[in-house]
Design a protein around this nucleic acid. Structure first.
Lengths: 130, 130
DNA sequence: CAGAATATATCGGCTGCCGATATATATCGC
DNA sequence: GCGATATATATCGGCAGCCGATATATTCTG
């Protein structure tokens, strides 16, 4: 799943929204950090629809403007949930390894044992994702 | 930052590694879920080097095979840390909104108040990333 | 001796993101 | 009234990046 697709699904996770609303919502929920572009949106919407992760919920005409609302399917919710899980796991793995790196390398101010040997603690700290 | 770049940085976070070692390490640290391809690796390595996030640590010849070791720069560590933070925040936002969606829509079996109003708790739960 | 693993690297194709552009209506300030 | 901005849709071409295929070379295993 691409980053753009992830944020579209996230924007739709609490309620159905229309295209322009998704744009604004992604910016708001990411605290302005992620800006989903108009040129990106419709391709993502088409792909997610084709993949069965979202569906066209309804079309409304509000104040003379057409609004096309999309919502998550059950499959879409499951996919978003799984992706969030993967991201959290990846983030956790990175954090743990950064900590392991800080503990392993700079803890030794100058020369010590043989040459380039790792400190005994390092391998076990790495751990997996699950 | 691309996904591939994130995993390369993560693989290098605890200690310097060579290209083929990064490939194996990414697969291992992700519990087999992420498979970084050979055709992807060297482009990523070049870009990360150009961006100053990694540097060539040393070159060794072990058992007749050349090994080119890379390591994270301070900037690389900071970038990886920031990206991990963003991913964790994104994952958290998705999880919260999924929960809000489940609470908002299917919790009401049939018609109730006005029309399409959200339950009072919903807006506050959405929250930002930071 | 053949095949797999280790280790490097390149290239073409395809996917996907983005900026620009187009169209249309409503609103706001001047 | 008129231009600028906001709302709302959509398309297209360029560019970046991932992947499969391919190439080369050595070591290890069967």
């Amino acid at each position: 799943m691409t980053r753009a697709a992830f944020f579209v699904l996230t924007a739709l996770a609490d309620q159905p929204r229309h295209g322009y609303g998704i744009l604004r919502e992604v910016e708001e929920l990411s605290d302005g950090e992620v800006q989903l572009r108009v040129g990106t949106l419709y391709g993502v919407l088409d792909r997610l629809t084709a993949d069965g992760l979202i569906v066209l919920d309804r079309e409304e005409v509000q104040q003379g403007r057409l609004r096309r609302y999309y919502r998550l399917t059950d499959e879409g919710v499951a996919a978003l949930d799984a992706e969030a899980e993967r991201m959290a796991a990846g983030a956790g793995a990175a954090k743990r390894r950064i900590a392991a790196g800080r503990a392993g390398a700079p803890a030794r101010p100058a020369g010590e044992g043989p040459a380039g040997l790792l400190p005994p603690a390092a391998p076990g700290l790495a751990g997996g994702l699950a």
